[in-house]
C-alpha cells in the first residue's frame, strides 16, 4: 500500500469510528425520548408515586429534585465563589496553594458514591440529620464544589489582567476590584458553569441514596411552614429524587410498571438537562454580546 492509500484508509477508519459514536448518541436520545414520551402525561407529572401498583406518577420526585437543586446551589455557590476568588486572586505561587489545588482535585476525583457515603456517615448518622433533603444537599455540595470552583476560577482567570490593574491603580481595594469589576465581567462564564453543574446535580443519584433517602412521603403543597413534617418545604424530610426513583423502581422490582415509569422519568430528566445545557449556552452568548457592546 502506498502512503497515500494508507492515509485514505486511515481517514475512512476514523470517520467510521466517529459515525459509530454519533449513532450511539442518536440511539440513546432516540431510545429515551421514543420510549419515554408516550408515558409522559399531565397525570404522570402531577400524581404521587405508588410503589406496589401501576399508574404512579412522579410529582413529588420531580419537586424534590428541583428543591434539592436549589438548596444545593444555595449552599455550594457562595463556598465555591469564595474559594475560586481565593485561588484566582489571593493565592500565591507556593506549596500551600498547590496543597489546596491537590485537595480540590482529590475531591473531584472521588467517586460520588464515596462522597455520598461520607455524607451518610457524618450528617445522617453522626449529626442525626437523618435521611433528609438537607443531608442530600450537603452531600451534593461536596460533589459539586470542585467543578463549580474550577469553572468560576476559569471565568475569573479569563478576565484580562489589565482590568485588575485598572482597578487597583485607582486606589480601590482588591476586594472592591473583584466585586465591582472582575465578577461582573466573569458573570457569563460563571452563570454557564452554574447551569451546567445544575444539570449534573439534577441527574445525580449515587450521592443521594444514603443521604436524601429513597422514600418520598406524601407532601402537602399547601403547607408553607418549613418546620411542619408534611410541608413540601421542610428540609428535614427524606426526599427521593427523580434520578433515585429511576434507580429504585428498577432495582427493587416491586412496582409493576417500573419500566414505563423509568422510561418516562428518564425522558423528563433528559429533557430538563437538555434545557439546562441549551440555556447555559444561550445565556452565556447573550451576556457576552451585551457586555462587549455588541461588537
Amino acid at each position: 500500500m502506498t502512503p497515500n492509500q494508507t492515509d485514505r484508509l486511515a481517514t475512512r477508519f476514523i470517520q467510521f469510528l466517529v459515525l459509530i459514536v454519533v449513532l450511539i448518541l442518536l440511539f440513546l436520545l432516540g431510545d429515551i425520548i421514543i420510549s419515554g414520551l408516550p408515558h409522559i402525561s399531565w397525570h404522570f407529572l402531577t400524581s404521587p408515586a405508588s410503589s406496589f401498583s401501576a399508574g404512579g406518577g412522579i410529582r413529588d420526585q420531580l419537586f424534590n429534585s428541583l428543591y434539592l437543586l436549589v438548596l444545593t446551589l444555595i449552599i455550594s455557590f457562595p463556598l465555591a465563589l469564595g474559594s475560586a476568588i481565593y485561588l484566582s486572586e489571593y493565592a500565591g505561587d507556593n506549596w500551600f496553594t498547590s496543597l489546596i489545588r491537590t485537595a480540590i482535585e482529590v475531591l473531584s476525583s472521588l467517586p460520588s458514591v464515596v462522597v455520598g457515603l461520607f455524607g451518610y456517615l457524618l450528617f445522617v448518622i453522626e449529626f442525626h440529620l437523618g435521611f433528609s433533603i438537607l443531608s442530600g444537599a450537603i452531600a451534593l455540595t461536596f460533589f459539586n464544589l470542585p467543578l463549580l470552583i474550577r469553572s468560576i476560577e476559569g471565568s475569573l482567570h479569563a478576565v484580562p489582567n489589565s482590568q485588575r490593574e485598572a482597578g487597583i491603580a485607582l486606589g480601590l481595594s482588591n476586594w472592591r476590584t473583584i466585586r465591582g469589576i472582575l465578577l461582573p465581567m466573569a458573570l457569563p462564564g460563571i452563570l454557564t458553569g452554574i447551569i451546567l453543574s445544575a444539570g449534573r446535580i439534577f441527574g445525580e443519584a449515587a450521592a443521594l441514596i444514603y443521604t436524601a433517602g429513597q422514600s418520598a412521603p406524601i407532601l402537602d403543597y399547601t403547607n408553607w411552614n418549613p418546620t411542619a413534617s408534611s410541608s413540601f418545604l421542610n428540609p428535614m424530610r427524606p426526599a427521593e429524587t427523580l434520578a433515585v426513583h429511576i434507580w429504585k423502581v428498577n432495582t427493587e422490582g416491586v412496582t409493576p410498571d417500573a419500566v414505563s415509569i423509568s422510561a418516562g422519568s428518564s425522558a423528563v430528566l433528559i429533557i430538563i438537562i437538555l434545557l439546562f445545557n441549551f440555556g447555559a449556552r444561550a445565556i452565556g452568548n447573550r451576556m457576552y454580546k451585551k457586555m462587549t457592546g455588541g461588537k
Binding site: L79, I104, L110, V115, F118, F142
Partner: peptide, 24 residues
C-alpha cells in the same frame, strides 16, 4: 473582609477534604 471571606471558604474546603479522608 475580602481576605476573611475567601480564606474561610478555602479553609472549609480543606477541612472537608481532610474529614472525608479521615472518616472513610
Amino acid at each position: 473582609i475580602g481576605r476573611i471571606v475567601s480564606y474561610s471558604c478555602i479553609a472549609a474546603i480543606i477541612i472537608l477534604v481532610i474529614s472525608i479522608l479521615y472518616f472513610i
